[in-house]
Write a protein that binds this DNA or RNA. Structure first.
Lengths: 216, 216
DNA sequence: AATTTACCGTACCGAACGTTACGGTTCGGA
DNA sequence: TCCGAACCGTAACGTTCGGTACGGTAAATT
């Protein structure tokens, strides 16, 4: 009995195939994800779906979890950091994050999570936040604090500093994409935007140029 | 025959009552907005709903349009501006925008628009963007350009500058709220965040401290 | 070989919901 | 006063879809 149920362990190979099918349906059109369509796409029976995932909500949760857990923010070595390497780290973070939030998969996942966030069954948003926004913060804050320890950055609240960096990266891009605005991000554009965000972050929180309140 | 249909003129008083009912349903729970529930809440017949709005999508569009058009970004007088008044304007803008995006009504509208943005029937996102993000930009850009003309600000692309300001205001707040994160914004917190955003914007684009690329 | 297990494919059931139709009421104009 | 337009309340229809049941098959187990 390897039924993953609602909050089971890792899905096996076959279950991953099913979740991939569900994910593809989700990306194509979130409203088209029906139990029958997933079963058809994955060449499995609906009975199996219910045995493995309990109900539609369990399948949805497993799918979101399955994909969200694959978005892994790269770790960083806090030791031996200088201005150039820190800047490179931040640019890299910004570029990766822009790539993620503009991908079809991420947009589909965020859309379905947001769509049911109002309902009392809205625990998908928590999953997306945990593997996205919060995971990003946990990975980035040590970098910021290492930068502060090295005398490169200046702030009192790492959380507030991260929030500002987050805003400098995403700006209005994320919400516009979520709302269906046709915004084409080229690789070069992402690199430029990431560099601009890192540069602006240094302008605000760089140790040599303290400016801008960090917020209470 | 005053049927507003899909893209008709202003709704009359009775129709506004209906749209208010739909809006309340939407805020309570977007999934609970059904033709029967709207008719019951508004004490009207379903037949009337279909006569006035065509179909469910038309009712939804009219509801979003009805509310979105009520979010009016305050105009500003570009003449006679100095550092203090410009700063006050920006803080006011930031505070008002934070209030809007954290309101239950705005969140509900954005959620339903995002939820159907993936579908080919996703024109709600365009409405929300037009009355939200884009209206805001059109109102703010003259202010920024007035500030530049007065020698208070320094930038080459007003659009890019506005995007940065937008990011400094919203940061991760909007996406977290949309995803259902329990984030309580107090009036004092909004004021503080708005002041911080304006201060940071001045640090990046103030004429006396040019720093941070504006992005190509 | 017999049996159990897991699974696929399909059919089926019931509820929700969009949509249409109809009878009854109100009200303004001829 | 009569008529028709607009509208309310409710019933009814058809589809979609979540969830369940059942027969058939192949592989593993005993």
């Amino acid at each position: 009995m390897n039924s993953s149920q609602t909050s089971g362990s890792e899905p096996n190979a076959r279950q991953a195939e099913v979740l991939d099918a569900a994910l593809h349906l989700l990306v194509e059109d979130g409203h088209r994800l029906t139990m029958a369509s997933v079963a058809r796409r994955a060449s499995c029976s609906k009975e199996t779906l219910y045995k493995w995932f309990g109900d539609r909500d369990g399948l949805l949760s497993a799918t979101v979890q399955y994909q969200a857990s694959r978005v892994h923010v790269p770790a960083v070595d806090p030791a031996r950091i200088d201005r150039a390497s820190l800047s490179a780290r931040l640019e890299d973070f910004a570029a990766k994050w822009l790539s993620v939030i503009s991908s079809d998969t991420s947009l589909a996942l965020n859309r379905v999570a947001i769509g049911q966030a109002a309902s009392d069954k809205g625990h998908l948003g928590a999953i997306v936040l945990r593997h996205g926004r919060f995971a990003l913060g946990e990975r980035l804050k040590p970098v910021l604090e290492a930068g502060r320890a090295a005398g490169l950055l200046q702030f009192v609240d790492a959380e507030a500093a991260f929030q500002t960096f987050f805003g400098l990266i995403a700006r209005d891009v994320h919400i516009r994409l979520l709302l269906g605005d046709s915004l084409t991000l080229t690789a070069a554009g992402i690199e430029a935007d990431a560099a601009a965000a890192a540069s602006q972050f240094f302008a605000l929180y760089g140790a040599e140029a303290p400016a801008g309140k960090t917020g209470s």
